[in-house]
Design a binder for these strands. Structure first.
Length: 291
DNA sequence: AAAGGTGGCAACCGCAATATA
DNA sequence: GTATATTGCGGTTGCCACCTT
């Protein structure tokens, strides 16, 4: 049995929206508010699929949409965010007020991807020589400990392509292990071909995905040993260098992260191993944006 | 002027997460 | 606990305007 389509396509308009349709949708949402997309077309008298209405509203009709070209500042921000977050356009859009994920995605595909590719090619030689000096945590596994990942894109920094909620990760070590607070268990649905195990990343009520999706400065801070700690004093948003208490819950520690990722091959390894640079970046970003 | 090629953008599609019955 | 509905996301497609030959 296949999945039921979201709506019957029969008798529905498709393609570009007319001014009348736009007006109808806008007026309806102004009166009734967003949501209930499935019934909206019927109640509003639109011959459109609910999904189509939602998309039209979010990407075009919403009053807070920013029109006009993407500024140099925005462009630079997109590039930097994409470097760290990958194709998670909704997350990137969340940091660019008035811009939609679709707009950013299109802008990336048409302009920035080529631009970045050109830049990275020219910087390649220089990068090779300076990478070892950077502060980011490098993954440098021993050859025998590593099993080549089953699927890898040519992009080096981003693996995740869907905005999926992640409370499990895959890795390919031979034996299950307990690493720090992580409870490591064999995935029951493991097909045996990849020797996959799963590690539950729920740590004290905060899982890695929440960490990645959260406002970093509200959640973490680094202590003198580069350990990432949950910020117990999240009210103090303006203080970006709070005092660390030994009572603060330890979330990740640089050495442990390196140790952990060295032995495993995780689909989100790159994102997680770069937590510190991401966090540092987001802090800098907030300063930069004057927030 | 016409034909073909290219790029930008809006819209569509399918999948996955979440909510609800 | 399961099935179904709804919502949100990223990837892809197709249209259209512009450019080149």
């Amino acid at each position: 049995m296949g999945r039921r389509p979201c709506c019957s396509k029969e008798g529905l308009n498709r393609g570009a929206w007319t001014a009348l349709e736009d007006r109808t949708l806008k007026e309806y949402i102004q009166i009734h508010g967003e949501g209930g997309w499935r019934n909206l077309p019927i109640e509003a008298g639109l011959k459109r699929c609910g999904k189509s209405c939602r998309l039209r509203w979010l990407n075009y009709l919403r009053p807070d949409i920013k029109r006009g070209n993407i500024s140099e500042e925005e462009e630079e921000l997109i590039i930097r965010l994409h470097k760290l977050l990958g194709n998670r356009w909704s997350l990137i859009a969340g940091r660019l007020p008035g811009r939609t994920d679709n707009e950013i995605k299109n802008y990336w595909n048409t302009n920035l991807s080529k631009k970045v590719q050109t830049q990275s090619t020219s910087k390649q030689t220089h990068k090779q020589s300076t990478l070892s000096k950077s502060k980011r945590i490098l993954i440098n596994p021993t050859p025998q400990a590593r099993v080549p990942p089953p699927v890898r894109t040519t992009e080096s920094c981003v693996v995740r392509t869907k905005a999926t909620r992640c409370t499990k990760i895959f890795f390919t070590s031979e034996e299950p292990a307990v690493v720090n607070e992580f409870v490591v268990e064999k995935a029951p649905e493991s097909d045996g071909l990849l020797s996959d195990f799963m590690a539950d990343l729920d740590v004290g009520g905060l899982c890695l995905s929440e960490f990645l999706h959260s406002d970093f400065s509200d959640l973490y801070r680094f202590d003198d040993n580069d350990a990432i700690r949950l910020d117990g004093n999240s009210d103090n948003n303006n203080d970006l260098s709070p005092q660390i208490s030994s009572d603060d819950p330890l979330l990740f520690h640089g050495e442990n992260i390196e140790h952990y990722w060295t032995g495993v091959d995780c689909i989100q390894r790159d994102a997680a191993s770069d937590l510190q640079s991401l966090a540092t970046f987001l802090n800098a970003e907030e300063d930069w944006l004057g927030e």
